[in-house]
């Protein structure tokens, strides 16, 4: 009961202080707002990058062409050897015989249909193929090399250059966005520490008297920490609106794809809500940590 009464007092005092020091509060709120907008953009960018890296990785297939003269035994043996490579996802191994390849190509266009029909079974340039997916995309090139060494394997294709480049580009984009988020959060914490320090030094006398009449550190600290949380919460209103409506507009404007069909954006729902949640939590935490840091100095005797 006493704790509730004290908490009530803390919250009341915190609101009073935000309003009484309005210009100062506005300064820290706008700081938090700007930071959180950038944080929100970075968070959304990094989630999207993560998403399309995953999508691309999912679709990434190694195609293995066997020699023209390979027999059914060879096919079975190659499949066995493929199964033994640890980085290959066993369930993804699919086989297409010459005949199946021919049929599917014939279905694709009439030109292929007529050309292919002119070749007899023996003359056909088509090869038996395997399609496999890998578990770890970063090791795709070494896996491809290993497959090439299997007997009767003619060529291995996985779109080498482009895939490698894309993967490195995405992973560096992700690292940069993480770095930006962390740096911004740290900067904001320091800004809040300074702002709250100013409001505290205006209330130094009050804190001194509180200490003299026997207020515990908890009682003195809580209003300031609540104040920091309120500042963080108020500072996250604009970024939350920005996140939800901004991303929705962005998504609709590009019809869910960025530049090519390859890069697919994350669907807005429920993505925008979770991002908004993250932004609010970061805002409140930043305000809390900042004010706790600021008030610490004043509680030593």
């Amino acid at each position: 009961m006493r704790i509730i009464r004290m908490l009530g007092r803390s919250i009341r005092d915190a609101f009073k202080s935000v309003i009484r020091n309005f210009s100062l509060s506005l300064a820290s709120i706008s700081c938090i707002t700007i930071t959180l907008i950038i944080v929100a953009i970075a968070v959304m960018a990094s989630f999207n990058v993560q998403n399309f890296t995953k999508e691309i990785e999912k679709d990434l297939t190694i195609v293995i062409f066997l020699n023209n003269e390979s027999t059914e035994d060879d096919v079975a043996r190659v499949e066995q050897e493929l199964r033994e490579i640890p980085n290959i996802d066993k369930s993804s191994i699919t086989f297409e015989s010459k005949q199946e390849v021919k049929e599917s190509m014939q279905k694709e266009s009439e030109v292929f249909d007529t050309v292919l029909n002119e070749w007899s079974e023996d003359e056909s340039p088509l090869k038996d193929t395997f399609q496999v997916k890998v578990k770890n995309v970063e090791q795709i090139s070494s896996t491809a090399e290993r497959i090439e060494k299997i007997e009767q394997v003619n060529t291995v294709r996985y779109g080498e250059g482009m895939v490698d480049q894309m993967i490195t580009a995405f992973s560096s984009i992700e690292k940069v966005t993480y770095g930006v988020v962390i740096a911004l959060v740290i900067v904001t914490v320091f800004l809040i520490i300074n702002t709250i320090k100013l409001t505290i030094s205006a209330r130094r006398r009050e804190i001194g008297i509180m200490r003299l009449v026997g207020a515990s550190n908890f009682t003195i600290k809580t209003p300031f920490i609540v104040e920091g949380m309120i500042l963080g919460l108020l500072g996250s209103i604009v970024p939350v609106i920005f996140t939800t409506y901004g991303y929705l507009a962005f998504y609709n404007h590009f019809d869910g794809y960025l530049f090519t069909q390859l890069i697919q954006l994350i669907k807005p729902e429920p993505f925008i809500y979770s991002t908004a949640g993250i932004v609010i939590v970061i805002g409140i935490l930043v305000g809390m940590v900042g004010s706790a840091g600021a008030v610490r100095k004043y509680l030593k005797i």
Binding site: I3, R5, R205, I209, M210, L212, V213, G214, A215, I220
Partner: peptide
């Protein structure tokens, strides 16, 4: 060492409030 923005009553009550009296 009184708080200038509080009345006489509030100044005295302050000492009880911060220790959580009803």
């Amino acid at each position: 060492r009184l708080l200038p923005k509080l009345t006489v009553y509030e100044n005295v009550a302050f000492a009880m409030e911060v220790i959580g009296a009803t």
